[in-house]
């Protein structure tokens, strides 16, 4: 399998007052062509920042402080703005978390799809109109609704429209930022099924940013777990869920219900909150919340290592993972940390 995107050693810093807050530090992951890669972690872990960095449309006070974004033979981190802009949406498109706020309220949905097709795809008005109808069919909305304004759509329809918009120019990579978070569970499933189907049909590569490990379990081929601005574990989803190597991944698994079999088991949250990124701790960033933290964990930061083929983890105690998994499956292990 060829690699479409390879993020290496990426750092992104926000200027807050006179301080630099490093939201993503020296992190990387790969996206093999034609797969869905999940980027999962708590809010504030840097996953959205990382995803947005791929489009290079980031907050005014943020900057890419280092690293490389190798995409299709180019380094996006170093590309001149004009070249980057030429590549936006044509090669990398984006599905936002809240389609309501991401669609312009004063234009009809059709206009907003046609705008991209005409301005960025160079289509004629007639071709764009036909394509817009085709896109609506693809995502399962009646094309009669094209003439609606965004506020006339339901939440699920808006999210589908956002997907249609993202697919408009046949991009190589779709970055979806919490695409179903705002929806109820039934609609979530429908949208994820739709996305999954389209991804297979079109051979798309997708990055799925989410805080919800059940969404990852349901849709993603590979999963990258982030914690406090760092990638802590990265492997194929089945392995990640069955044999996680990082205690944080183990904890996350306990904290979410399963999308496939709702209502099984008790949820155990991970106590505490992530460290302040303006002043990150020495050692492992998860150490303060980790039930298995040792002396070494508090003093020295673990480097990400490929411990098995295609399974990267950054944990000093990764070799004891089998034992730790057993401990981690007991709620009292985590409750003791509260």
């Amino acid at each position: 399998m060829t690699t479409l995107l390879s993020v290496k050693d990426l750092s992104i810093a926000y200027k807050v007052g006179s301080n630099d807050v490093v939201a993503v530090s020296n992190s990387g992951f790969d996206v093999p062509k034609g797969t869905i890669v999940g980027l999962v972690g708590e809010s504030g872990c840097g996953k959205t920042t990382m995803a947005r960095a791929l489009t290079r449309v980031i907050a005014d006070n943020a900057r890419i402080a280092g690293g490389e974004i190798a995409f299709d033979g180019q380094d996006l981190a170093a590309l001149p703005e004009a070249k980057m802009n030429a590549l936006r949406w044509r090669d990398i498109s984006f599905i936002p978390q809240s389609a309501m706020n991401s669609l312009d309220p004063v234009y009809r949905v059709e206009y907003q799809i046609m705008e991209v097709l005409r301005d960025r795809g160079g289509m004629t008005r007639r071709a764009a109109r036909a394509r817009a109808a085709e896109l609506f069919e693809m995502v399962g909305i009646d094309k009669g609704r094209l003439r609606d304004f965004p506020h006339q759509f339901s939440g699920g329809m808006r999210q589908r429209a956002a997907i249609a918009l993202a697919l408009a120019l046949n991009p190589k990579l779709v970055v979806a930022d919490e695409p179903v978070t705002a929806l109820d569970v039934i609609i979530q499933r429908q949208i994820l099924d739709q996305l999954r189907t389209l991804q297979r049909e079109l051979g798309l590569s997708v990055i799925m940013v989410t805080h919800d490990i059940s969404v990852v379990a349901y849709t993603c081929d590979r999963t990258v777990v982030m914690y406090a601005g760092k990638v802590v574990e990265d492997c194929d989803t089945a392995t990640l869920l069955n044999r996680p190597l990082h205690p944080y991944t183990m904890g996350l698994k306990n904290a979410f219900p399963d999308l496939k079999s709702a209502g099984s088991g008790v949820l155990t949250p991970i106590a505490g909150s992530p460290p302040d990124l303006a002043d990150p701790p020495d050692g492992c960033r998860f150490a303060a919340r980790c039930p298995f933290a040792a002396e070494l964990c508090r003093s020295t930061e673990p480097a990400p290592l490929e411990v098995e083929k295609g399974h990267i983890v950054a944990c000093h105690r990764a070799s004891e993972a089998a034992q730790l998994r057993l401990e981690a499956s007991k709620p009292q292990t985590w409750e003791a940390m509260a």
């Binding site: 449309v57 802009n85 936006r88 498109s93 809240s98 706020n101 991401s102 312009d104 705008e115 301005d119």
Partner: peptide, 16 residues
Amino acid sequence: EDFITMAKIKGLSPFA
């Protein structure tokens, strides 16, 4: 607003 950010991500011209 988010839709302005999206317009930038879409690579629309500054005019748009």
